Simulated assay, not measured.
Amino acid sequence: MDCQKIVKTLKHKHFIRVPNKGNCFEDGAVIYAKEIKTNIFLLFVILKDIEIENIKALIAHFDSFSSIGEKEPEQIMFYLSIKDKKDLHYFEKYLKISDN
């Protein structure tokens, strides 16, 4: 899985990188978030380890944008762990990852 293409696409789709300051996500995880409705956010959490690349996609309710990465979400409405290209297939239409 090419995390660089995914990150490039997220930035193009106006996702904002959020500091990971709390205990909600793994150490070293990179968080990209976009508000899709008032205080409802679509998040992509990217964890790059030596041996694996793991992406978590979730739709969650937070108090505010600034609480993402610091506090647990109020509610998780959708969660998907993407560990290989087969899992990523479900998001390809949304992400529209280009080869550029």
Rank of each mutant, 00 (worst) to 15 (best):
I52L: 10
S66E: 14
I36K: 10
K48L: 13
K37D: 12
K5D: 09
F41I: 07
P73T: 02
M77T: 07
T38Q: 12
Y79C: 01
I55L: 15
V18K: 12
Y94T: 10
E53Q: 10
F15E: 01
I16V: 14
D27Q: 10
I31F: 05
I36R: 10
G22I: 05
H12K: 15
H14I: 05
H89K: 11
I31S: 03
L10I: 11
N100Y: 10
G69W: 00
Y90L: 14
A60K: 01
E92S: 13
N39Y: 03
Y94W: 13
H12L: 12
V30H: 04
D99Y: 09
S81A: 12
I97K: 04
E72C: 05
S64T: 14
I76K: 09
F78H: 07
L43F: 05
L47I: 11
I76Q: 07
I50N: 08
F91P: 08
Y94L: 12
N23Y: 07
D99P: 00
N39Q: 08
M77F: 09
F25G: 01
I82V: 15
H12A: 13
N20C: 11
I16E: 13
Y94Q: 06
E26S: 15
D63M: 06
V45E: 07
C24V: 15
Y94R: 06
N23S: 15
Y79S: 06
C24D: 14
E72M: 12
I76M: 08
P73M: 02
K21Q: 10
D63G: 05
P73L: 02
P19G: 06
D99Q: 11
P73S: 04
E35I: 01
F25T: 03
F44E: 00
K5W: 02
D99M: 08
T9H: 02
G28Q: 06
F62P: 03
E26M: 12
I59G: 02
E74I: 14
D63I: 10
E26L: 13
I76H: 03
K86R: 09
G28F: 04
R17I: 03
K83D: 09
C3K: 09
K85N: 14
V18Q: 13
M77P: 00
V7T: 13
S98R: 13
D2A: 06
